[in-house]
């Protein structure tokens, strides 16, 4: 951020709004200030504080890939006061954004490896950033597998992109919904992400697993990956504890000694094992 006052947001105009699922929207945001747009850089895995002045700030990962220049995207579910205010914003409105904050997925270290992305529900957005980042550099990686689950078919986000990924010969996409969440014409899997993963996962040999989901999904997915032979240092996740500042001062997002905002949000399985389950 160029402003010496680290609490001042960039002003961003909403260029496009996409309704992804019931209560879930994606905003494409462009900088109001040209210079800020030119100087802004981020990497896959980082997050920001999105705000409506007069209402407050809310924390989401940047959902677009750093390879797509000129804009950022965020996807959020309308739940609380701030996300409700964001949800009622229209294309052309100006909102606030502070960031990028936090560490990044070590995507450069994954060259020549297979990647398996595992996401649940509204946790696909933080992963979409690194998925597109990898797809835009497709030749750098071997097999790419995406395992994505949501409660119901309607709750699956990025439906157009799921269709696109499903049609690509260089991606193996597996979608699943919770039992009872299927529709009559549902062609995907039925079952929770960890158990579906166990069936469809690629070999752990030369493979990096990237997991993102609610804490409960992470806690159930890690043992499955372990059983499949994934070493802790080949597993990555991104945590999303409650935050206010985003830069290690407000004091609430820490997991043991580590602050999710500055030491994370990206953690390897190896790092996570050293931390208490305070997420």
């Amino acid at each position: 951020m160029n402003n010496p006052n680290i609490y001042i947001p960039y002003l961003m105009r909403i260029e496009k709004i996409t309704q992804e699922a019931p209560g879930v929207k994606t905003f494409r945001l462009k900088f109001e200030n040209k210079q800020e747009a030119e100087e802004f850089e981020f990497k896959a895995g980082q997050f920001g504080e999105y705000s409506i002045v007069g209402v407050g700030e809310s924390t989401f990962c940047i959902a677009s890939s750093p390879t797509r220049k000129g804009y950022i995207e965020c996807t959020f579910r309308q739940v609380g006061r701030v996300t409700s205010a964001l949800a009622s914003a229209e294309e052309g409105d100006v909102i606030g954004f502070r960031g990028p904050y936090g560490n990044t997925f070590p995507i450069d270290e994954w060259k020549g490896k297979n990647l398996v992305f595992i996401a649940g529900g509204i946790a696909l957005p933080p992963m979409r950033c690194v998925i597109w980042n990898a797809l835009d550099l497709r030749e750098n990686f071997e097999d790419i597998t995406i395992v994505y689950g949501a409660r119901t078919v309607a709750d699956l986000v990025y439906k157009h992109e799921l269709e696109e990924w499903g049609n690509r010969p260089d991606i193996k996409l597996v979608t699943t919904v919770d039992p009872g969440g299927e529709t009559p014409d549902w062609k995907g899997e039925i079952g929770f992400v960890p158990s579906v993963l166990e069936k469809v996962a690629p070999s752990a040999e030369n493979t990096i697993a990237i997991v993102c989901g609610p804490p409960i999904m992470i806690k159930f997915t890690f043992p499955v990956l372990e059983k499949l032979g994934f070493a802790d240092h080949n597993i990555y996740t991104t945590l999303e504890n409650r935050m206010k500042c985003g830069f290690g001062k407000c004091g609430r997002c820490n997991v043991g000694e580590k602050y999710v905002c500055i030491d994370g949000p990206v953690f390897s399985g190896e790092e996570l094992k050293l931390l208490p389950a305070e997420y």
Binding site: Y7, V53, G54, V55, K244, C245, C250, R252
Partner: peptide, 23 residues
């Protein structure tokens, strides 16, 4: 020094505030 960040709105004007908080 844990804090919260809250907005206060008066019509078209307002302020963003930092307020003491507690773990």
């Amino acid at each position: 020094s844990c804090f919260d960040i809250q907005d206060e709105k008066h019509g078209s004007k307002g302020t963003r505030l930092r307020c003491w908080d507690s773990c």
